[in-house]
Design a protein around this nucleic acid. Sequence first.
RNA 1: CGGGGAGUGGCGCAGCCUGGUAGCGCAUCUGCUUUGGGAGCAGAGGGUCGCAGGUUCGAAUCCUGUCUCCCCGACCA
Length: 440
Amino acid sequence: MRLSRAFLPVLKESPADAQIVSHKLMLRAGLVRQTAAGIYAWLPLGLRVLRKIERIVREEQDRAGAIEMLMPTLQSADLWRESGRYDAYGPEMLRITDRHKREMLYGPTNEEMLTALFRDDVKSYRDLPRTLYHIQWKFRDEVRPRFGVMRGREFLMKDAYSFDLDEAGARLSYYTQLLAYLRTFQRLGIRAVPMKAASGPIGGDLSHEFIVLAPTGESEVFYDAAFEDFDWNRADLDYSDEAGLHGLFDQVSGTYAATDETHDESRWAQVPVNRQRTGRGIEVGHIFYFGDKYSAAMGLKVSGRDGSPVTPMMGSYGVGVSRLVGAIIEASHDDAGIVWPEAVAPWRVGIVTMRQDDQASADVADDLYARLTAAGVETLYDDRDERGGVKLGSMDLIGLPWQIVIGPRGLAQGVVELKDRRSGEKMELSAESALARLTA
RNA sequence: CGGGGAGUGGCGCAGCCUGGUAGCGCAUCUGCUUUGGGAGCAGAGGGUCGCAGGUUCGAAUCCUGUCUCCCCGACCA
């Protein structure tokens, strides 16, 4: 992308409405614009990041055997009356009446809808287990939206739902998603620690929140540093390996991690002091098992092996995709701006010409841009006729992992500058070497 | 939902108390000079002062109502 043709508005000052760093940076770097309280338009840069996250989430869901579909944002109130949640949900649910006076709602989640869909078409134990998911916009009419996209009213969420014949099967589905989540967050380049959540409606040990560590997090967290060393992508862990999945769950359960809500001082005291980590965190995912809560209420039954009706046991698994954009920035930024992990960066490389009016600089930049792009390296080329300092400032703000700075001074020596945004490390090397490094 | 605050050009703000028809910085546009970390000078464009009523010769300013946004708390992916 040539910046001279992009829609990438960058602000020098933060709008007064933004309080926390990710919100300020998202506005300044041109990721989003607020259009109403807790509702945002995603500008091109923000959308690229959102899509990157979405793709990783999708790939890991697919790898874990979940099946993608897409359910609508609008739902009928009758569906929610079946589960009893239409009245229970309260004012957080955005209720809408259509022209025929039918009561509708903008979905805050999809348990009812998928349970109904499943009920209508699945009749046999042979069709279980299944885990289905979609990535869709949701709406929760928060009384007080804040923190930009991290606590918006409209948000993009991946939500998966598992259906199993019995609790043992449901546990395995849960473990599978647990692993998928650990892998997803690892790939996103952030540290998200699974924490046992306050027991949900069913209770038991099957509910975890995934918390990204960031100083501005909403809740206080305590965890064993061992979590920092686990490699969830290790080769010996496979979704088809039941014993391995049980082992994974035991490993996660056996390593201390809790939010202030579930913190247990006596168990905490057993964590070696040198491994005790405390901080603040942002919830970016939540998984839980809820048994037959919806299947029973909504009459979902399949024929069991012996012909008798069986009520499937369910779980649901959410990832706050749009919230992750903010959470990642909270966890990864510096005074100059955003520092994107490579996996989610809107572009991998940014090319800056210090003097676009210098023909030699422009030629080298044009050539590098063309060759990087041809090699499949996503590149943003700041070819604007702006002062070098302005362009470098924008590039730092936008936070692409690599910057190539090209100017007459360096070219006189036959070099360009390659800068690592995260470390700030700069090296001077030939344009060819820079290209080789970035396409290696 | 309780408590607090704010709506003035794209962004950040002043003006309001003490009514007299709108100003500053940044950004934008033009010209000249500049050019390796957010340039300088000169000039220009851009605002029904959230909206609706009221008071007044006259309202950004005073009064009433209303909408919106933000902060603290309770609540939440």
